[in-house]
């Protein structure tokens, strides 16, 4: 007992699975399974036990050079310490928000921070338009600027209840309550079966949940 994990403790940013399990919807076994995934992702280009943006892009798009506004924002939010890499603890805590059992409030807040591109505490109209343009670009959908303006205006006038030209957290929460499908992208059903994805780990685990 003990030797198995003491080896892993040498990885930079490694954290005790029991601590991470206590802070997230994952069980200890699931955190350990996530470590298997983390090791794979964090060694795909640079073998340093940290997920670099290129490694994140490679896993997400099968292309290390493919950049995308939303992928950049997701990476930045996962990179809590803002040091340009995702450490194991950051990875587990952030993925925890995407767990089907994570609180809706956490998902709503994460989405707000994601869409608050310039981190001003508000989702501004310009940011919303920028995100719509990014989505259209990645989907190769073509809409006229007039149509885009109508879509953004309509959404904005509905969400910006106070009418001050920006969407704050409270307005965002109300808007999500009215349109719960907006945070569907904050849930990964797959995370419920994470130990099934990495069964080799479960065989070697000595920790019981």
């Amino acid at each position: 007992m003990g030797c198995y994990w003491s080896k892993k403790a040498k990885t930079p940013g490694y954290e005790d699975p029991a601590v991470l399990a206590a802070e997230t919807p994952f069980t200890v076994n699931e955190v350990e399974a996530l470590y298997e995934l983390f090791k794979k992702l964090s060694s795909s280009i640079f073998d340093d036990g940290l997920i670099h943006k290129e490694e994140f892009q490679l896993a997400l798009f099968k292309n290390k050079d493919k950049r995308n506004l939303f992928a950049d924002r997701i990476f930045d939010l996962f990179d809590v310490k803002r040091n340009g890499v995702i450490e194991f603890g950051e990875f587990v805590r952030s993925l925890g928000v995407f767990h089907p059992n994570a609180p809706v409030e956490d998902k709503t807040e994460f989405a707000f921070r994601l869409y608050d591109l310039r981190q001003t505490g508000y989702i501004e109209r310009e940011e919303l338009k920028e995100m719509v343009l990014a989505l259209l670009h990645e989907s190769e959908l073509v809409l006229s600027d007039d149509v885009i303006e109508v879509i953004v205006d309509k959404t904005y006038s509905e969400a910006d209840k106070k009418g001050d030209g920006r969407i704050d957290q409270e307005e965002w929460r109300e808007f999500v309550l009215k349109h719960p499908s907006l945070i569907k992208n904050m849930t990964l059903p797959y995370l419920k079966d994470i130990t099934l994805a990495f069964p080799s780990f479960v065989m070697s685990s000595e920790v019981e949940d």
Binding site: F70, I74, L128, I151, K154, A159, N185
Partner: peptide, 25 residues
């Protein structure tokens, strides 16, 4: 009709949210 779309609904469909791709072997 595109004009009836909710802008946030639209952006939530970005492929970047397919985080299950991270788990592909």
């Amino acid at each position: 009709k595109p004009v009836s779309m909710n802008a946030f609904e639209l952006i939530s469909r970005s492929k970047s949210f397919n985080l299950e791709n991270l788990f592909e072997k």
